[in-house]
Design a protein around this nucleic acid. Structure first.
Lengths: 184, 184
DNA sequence: TCGTTATTGACAGCATACTGATAGACTGCA
DNA sequence: TGCAGTCTATCAGTATGCTGTCAATAACGA
């Protein structure tokens, strides 16, 4: 009988946790290589896209849209503002909130980033055949969707786009739990 | 014609980079939940396993075995030592090196961690059917394998287990590049 | 043997993540 | 109306991950 009394590195190498960590390392490295000239991180890119999609959004709602931890996002936005890619403005209707808008510089950078980001996505999947990529992405999407809500930063998409205004009272319950799935 | 002039969040959601980041978030969250009582992170767990597998290894070689960045590993080892799970000792033959050994406390913790780690791995794959899990893991392993060398911390396994001794001069070229694959 | 090159551990600095706490602002309900 | 509970941004603390640098040490080649 083989010795099963203790885990070895050979076991670790085949475990999902190890492989997901490695793949994340690789994905970030490739992204950073492609975007080196733009001084843009994956997280910053996603935040910019979301802000451009939804101008006037506030930081807490943004964190739900891009599935970032709220505490982390504060620093990310600070850096984006320091680089003049976005602006944060307080609002008269709700003094707790600072709404986010892209600057012209941010728009230009995002346009330039697009091809670089696409190249990065291509490169990380390059080792797989086209049919394998499809399978991989379908399974990965399923895994992420059905595990949404596990981490501190689950993805939460506001349906009906009735974003908060002075007239429309804000929807409650932004604090989703693990059992609550955003898309059914 | 649809407007393809700019990326939207809907595009980002389906990109590999986004999904890998989300999955890593989820995997770490699940691991930490299962190991909360043990005060052990995924990275610390892998380091412990590797040190137990290969007592007397030094930090640089360890970083290659577990695919950690060398700079990060220093802090990880510091914390493991502070928790009395490992010891770092200088050697007379090479004054640059500090060799690593597990303590009895580390052994005990590792034994206790095993079932928790297994539960974590189960949980993160739980949403997939057994056949889907197999497919996913095979593709993920392939992707990581063939992209090994891309990040700053590629996996490098020493073949022939001729670890350095006073008699045997150390193998050169630990500085692998992206083109160099560890296993053919 | 002696100078060049490599290796090692340690740092400083930046960016992403998460936990938990806090102060101020707002809402809804009694 | 007034207060309890909620929501916002922010902060301190911890951990990972990367870039780049440094001094001490070791190996190698001329």
């Amino acid at each position: 009988m083989p010795n099963k009394s203790a885990p070895s590195m050979q076991d670790v190498y085949t475990k999902p946790g190890h492989l997901f960590r490695r793949m994340q390392q690789i994905a970030v490295a490739i992204f950073m290589e492609e975007c080196a000239a733009l001084d843009l991180t994956p997280v910053q890119y996603a935040a910019l896209v979301a802000i451009r999609d939804d101008p006037g959004i506030d930081a807490t709602r943004l964190s739900a849209l891009v599935a970032f931890d709220r505490s982390t996002l504060g620093n990310v936005l600070e850096r984006l503002e320091a680089k003049d890619l976005i602006v944060r403005r307080p609002t008269p209707d709700d003094k707790r909130i600072k709404v986010l808008h892209m600057t012209a510089k941010g728009q230009r950078l995002l346009a330039k980033a697009m091809p670089a980001v696409d190249r990065a996505q291509e490169r990380m999947m390059a080792p797989l055949a086209p049919s394998e990529r499809k399978t991989m992405m379908a399974l990965l999407a399923k895994l992420v969707h059905l595990n949404n809500g596990v981490s501190r930063a689950p993805l939460r998409i506001e349906h009906g786009k009735a974003r908060r205004t002075a007239a429309a009272p804000r929807r409650r319950a932004l604090n989703g739990t693990a059992s609550e799935q955003t898309h059914a």
